[in-house]
Design a protein around this nucleic acid. Sequence first.
DNA 1: ATCGGTGTATTAAGCACTTAATACATATTT
DNA 2: AAATATGTATTAAGTGCTTAATACACCGAT
Lengths: 127, 127
Amino acid sequence: MNIQFNNRDPVYVQVVRHFKNQIAKGFLQPGQAIPSRRELANQLKINPNTAQRAYKEMEEEGLIKTEKNQPSRVTSNESILQDLRDELIIQAVNEFVTSVKSINVPLDDALTLVKQKYEGEKGDSDD
Amino acid sequence: MNIQFNNRDPVYVQVVRHFKNQIAKGFLQPGQAIPSRRELANQLKINPNTAQRAYKEMEEEGLIKTEKNQPSRVTSNESILQDLRDELIIQAVNEFVTSVKSINVPLDDALTLVKQKYEGEKGDSDD
DNA sequence: ATCGGTGTATTAAGCACTTAATACATATTT
DNA sequence: AAATATGTATTAAGTGCTTAATACACCGAT
């Protein structure tokens, strides 16, 4: 567990994004336990309330479930998990297409650039 | 001249983005005059200082030039204009590739989705 | 039963940033 | 010369939001 924080986005947003990526990637499995608020706060050197804020967001989106005196767990609702992945993809596509169309980049150029960039980098990014 | 403002980003940022798109698209030509701060403020119903803020940003990036008692003009520096377009494109590509790689979307899937989205929409967006 | 860990809620503090208000110098026009 | 429009700078106000502080109830283990 390690997150490279930037100074631009709020910490809790970055934490949520990190978990979403982990989940969408399948690195965090359905039903899998995740650290407690205070434990996560310790690991990431953030305030416990910030961790709570992140977990609350995920809870409200149905990504994690928390039961009395049990560690929070990734939801086992496959539909939600599928939706998460779809949403992340769709959002990325929409933003990209909007951007390139707004400055009249031809489709083929855009595709070529994506291909080059995608293949040009070795490892996966994580957040 | 018309901008559809959202409530998320600062107004001056949206103004800058609008001009950047117009320039990158070639809709605003090199050397072409743009409205005065107060005139733009009137047109867009924004505070003159907000217009000034936007122009200042563009001035600092070398996108526009302002000479004493002349309307501000789009720079005639072709290199800057080319860089602008390149930057917008590269940024869009980077963000997109980072996003899809972070959740292990295969390249072919990504390309297909972009193609579909691109072709699926008729008009260009403007900001 | 006491202690430590957990989730949660409320409130306060802090902070960065945008927008607004105001003023000034200059130049062009009437 | 007066008036109008321009760019620019300084300062103030407002505002939304993140983060921190604190407290409470619950449960399991010692």
